[in-house]
Design a protein around this nucleic acid. Structure first.
Length: 505
DNA sequence: GCATCATGCAA
DNA sequence: TATTGCATGATGC
């Protein structure tokens, strides 16, 4: 039960060939649960009431150390725990077998536990001095912006408080209210952009928000997490997401800025040890490729087989222009539709994203589904399947139940329908990269390459490798990732390397 | 001290 | 009324 926390400390000293983890089995059986605790599971799967460990040691400040617990009580707790674990295991494995999830459990998720433990243990070096310097740069500008904002407002207030900021913007300065939240005025970036030009304070606030985010989350937040060896050891969670993705926390290394140059500079702080480099591999359009495979849409499959720029290709089809004549705006709109399709699009959602009328958005979608006809069929079919079975599946039989499909509430049901479409896509992409991770880990060991997997960012893997082995690892990573599974179309992988995470782009 | 909200970062 | 996450500061209990 939750073996990664043990592997983290032990796996270099103990030969862990055979291990199991029932939290993982339970996650595969129902990935939507919020947590996996043995006393809860005893009730769910065996209808047995088990006192939790918490009942024995208490909680909060008064938590007892195990050595302080009454020996007899502890002994009976442990024997009950062991026998229960055996019974639970039997029950869970029968579910795994019935649902055709043995390969997913034994060949993907269980080996992955060790891979993630290794990533957590290795961690990643951080250039603290660089972060501090960058932080000071940002703080200097923040101080100036703060003064500027106060002068526009006419008084000092807490800019970070959405409540106080709303009062300044919409009561003191009388700017038009664009949107409300359930507790007051909305002041988010979308609203502020619409207010640009109506008052100079707006641009200052937008800039303030950007720098504040970078400073608090990605600079100050990280500095406190740097260990004595100068590393950050993030946790990679394997039983959190409903789709099969992994998540990362303390810190989250899966949402480091990249879209703006300023934010992207944070990535320069992540560095390999001396004489090592980072080698990165990322899947190109993996979710759309998965959708092409799942739907069997020949037009989209053909586009990927030709290695065409999929957004340009989509634009040329949707807007009825030659491939060469697609404008940047058309491509960008087509890209938004491609994204939207993967999320379970609505004309309203697309109209909001592109800031166009709902009617126009509907035309885009209709044209899209007229181009990729099998995708239209697939979207209808997968929702139907979800309703009939109560769940949907990925290519590796990962399953997610969707009770929302039965809801009488239209909004909830609509959500269920989008989930039914998105989960096989996002989840199959997660299956694919997990297979690649397990294979890479094994190959690096067997080939005795001086490289270690250190990061996964959903469609991207980062390996830290001794400079002499860079070329071999690049080749290996490319091959393993692109052949992790065989679909009806190729998987494309881009490989890069560099001396910081920023440079491995 | 903990929960919730609004916000914003990533794929 | 577009999917999946996590961290932050403010706010309220």
């Amino acid at each position: 039960y939750d073996i990664k926390s043990d592997l983290y400390y032990l796996f270099e000293d103990v030969n862990f060939k055979n291990y199991e983890d029932l939290t993982i089995a339970e996650y595969l059986i129902d990935p939507s649960r919020s947590k996996y605790e043995i006393d809860k599971s005893a009730k769910i799967y065996l209808n047995r009431n088990l006192h939790s460990l918490e009942d024995l040691v208490g909680k909060g400040k008064k938590t007892l150390s195990l050595s302080d617990v009454d020996k007899e009580k502890l002994g009976s707790y442990i024997s009950m725990y062991l026998s229960l674990t055996e019974d639970l295991r039997e029950k869970l494995l029968s579910y795994i077998d019935e649902r055709d999830m043995k390969e997913l459990y034994y060949d993907i998720e269980l080996p992955l536990v060790k891979v993630l433990a290794s990533m957590e243990r290795e961690g990643i070096y951080v250039n603290k001095d660089y972060l501090i310097e960058l932080g000071e740069e940002f703080q200097k500008e923040l101080d100036e912006l703060e003064k500027e904002i106060y002068s526009y407002a006419g008084y000092e207030f807490n800019i970070n408080s959405t409540k106080q900021l709303g009062e300044v913007l919409f009561e003191k300065l009388n700017l038009p209210v664009i949107k409300k939240t359930k507790t007051g005025y909305s002041t988010n970036a979308e609203v502020l952009h619409k207010l640009k030009g109506s008052h100079e304070i707006i641009e200052a606030i937008l800039r303030y928000r950007t720098l504040k985010k970078l400073t608090t989350t990605y600079i100050d937040g990280f500095i406190t997490l740097i260990s004595e060896e100068g590393k950050i050891h993030s946790l990679f969670n394997q039983n959190i997401t409903a789709t099969g993705r992994i998540s990362s926390q303390d810190p989250n290394l899966q949402n480091i800025p990249i879209k703006t140059e300023e934010g992207r500079k944070i990535r320069k702080a992540f560095i390999p040890p001396e004489n090592y480099s980072f080698v990165g591999g990322d899947y190109s359009q993996v979710e759309l490729r998965v959708l092409a495979h799942l739907s069997g849409d020949e037009v989209m499959i053909e586009a990927f087989k030709e290695d065409a720029d999929i957004h340009t290709k989509t634009a040329s089809e949707v807007f009825h222009v030659d491939f060469e004549d697609v404008t940047p705006l058309q491509r960008s709109n087509a890209k938004a539709v491609n994204f939207g399709i993967v999320y379970g699009i609505s004309d309203y959602g697309l109209s909001q994203d592109l800031d166009i009328s709902r009617k126009e958005a509907k035309e885009y979608i209709d044209n899209y589904l007229d181009t990729y006809k099998e995708i239209k069929t697939y979207m209808a079919d997968i929702v139907e399947t979800g309703k009939k079975q109560g769940y949907v599946e990925t290519i590796m039989h990962r399953r997610r139940y969707i009770p929302e499909l039965e809801s009488k509430n239209r909004n909830i049901r609509g959500f269920g329908e989008r989930v039914a479409l998105n989960t096989p896509i996002q989840g199959s992409a997660a299956d694919i990269i997990k297979i690649a991770m397990v294979e890479i880990y094994q190959e690096l060991q067997e080939k005795q390459l001086r490289g270690k997997l250190i990061l996964q960012v959903h469609d991207e893997l980062i390996i830290q490798v001794e400079d002499g082995d860079i070329d071999e690892v690049k080749e290996l990573l490319s091959n393993v990732m692109s052949h992790a599974v065989e679909l009806d179309l190729p998987l494309k992988v881009d490989i890069n390397s560099g001396k910081t995470w920023y440079d491995a782009k």
